[in-house]
């Protein structure tokens, strides 16, 4: 008993320490964001001496933070939704239909993920310049789809593989066409997986800085990631504003995650097949 109590205390303590290490940067971000502008360097200790919300007010009154966040939400939502629609259709076809070269398609899709984003950004820039897509929202969405779609295809293929094909067979015998069997049976069962893909796509697009900085010039089209970087100047950096912006930047992702995580439930397939 004493042994288990001791190990429990030890485990709890270890988790608490780990939690503090992980959360400290977030805490420090909040502390700096709540410090009056220009005073973060004079902080003594790890607690804020005077709390103010002026940085947040300044973000929205003197900087177009709302617009940047709006751009980010648009780009992230559009690119993750389109990647999901595209990836789920491809994944379904690759999972269910036997055709020559399907293995090769999968390998090629995977190969696109093997190259770091930094190596494709220059060819993408040249391509987009030729197509007139530079400095446009459409171009930005397209760029992010190229980041998210390959993984969406692989993940959704995996989810569809885990749904027994007999369920669709049963639905087709019960009066469904292939498409309505997909709609009535396969899609509802794949929802948890598709929700996970959506979150992955949203977060990837939301966090992207490389494409956002390379493909977009106009300040009115900046995403929040580019906006936050603009607080860093050559000679001085507005740390307090930057940290306030970073806090605001983190909120939409948390909201999306909280909404979608209810869809990610395990055991949705239990009881369907023996």
């Amino acid at each position: 008993m004493a042994h288990s109590l001791g190990s429990q205390i030890l485990r709890t303590a270890a988790l608490a320490v780990l939690g503090m290490i992980v959360l400290f940067p977030v805490y420090w971000m909040a502390v700096i964001a709540l410090t009056p502008t220009g005073f973060s360097r004079s902080l003594a200790g790890i607690f804020p001496q005077r709390i103010t919300f002026e940085n947040f007010a300044m973000l929205f009154s003197e900087r177009p933070m709302l617009r940047w966040i709006g751009n980010s939400i648009f780009v992230a939502a559009a690119s993750s939704f389109l990647s999901l629609a595209f990836g789920a259709s491809c994944g379904y076809a690759l999972s269910r239909i036997r055709f020559r070269g399907s293995g090769l398609v999968l390998i090629l899709v995977l190969a696109t993920q093997m190259m770091p984003a930094t190596s494709i950004v220059v060819p993408l820039y040249i391509l987009f310049r030729d197509f007139g897509l530079l400095d446009t929202m459409q171009g930005m969405v397209l760029g992010h789809i190229s980041l998210v779609a390959p993984l969406a295809i692989w993940m959704s293929k995996g989810f569809f593989d885990s749904i027994p094909a007999d369920l669709e067979g049963a639905a087709r015998i019960d009066g469904c066409s292939r498409l309505s069997a997909y709609w009535h049976v396969t899609l509802p069962l794949a929802l948890p997986g598709l929700a996970a893909i959506f979150i992955y796509g949203f977060v990837t697009s939301w966090h992207d800085f490389l494409f956002a900085k390379t493909l977009i010039n106009s300040q009115s089209l900046w995403t929040a990631a580019t906006g936050i970087s603009s607080f860093r100047g050559e000679y001085f950096t507005l740390h307090e504003l930057q940290m306030a912006a970073a806090l605001v930047f983190a909120l939409p992702v948390i909201v999306v995650f909280l909404i979608m995580q209810r869809r990610i439930v395990s055991g949705a397939l239990a009881g369907s097949v023996r």
Binding site: P164, A170, A171, V185, L189, L269, G271, S272, V273, R274
Partner: peptide, 20 residues
């Protein structure tokens, strides 16, 4: 003909019930 137009019903070896 597609399965839905054959007027057959089938009980699968693994039942294939719709879990949702």
């Amino acid at each position: 003909l597609p399965p839905k137009d054959r007027d057959v019903a089938m009980v699968f070896q693994n039942y294939a019930l719709y879990p949702h």
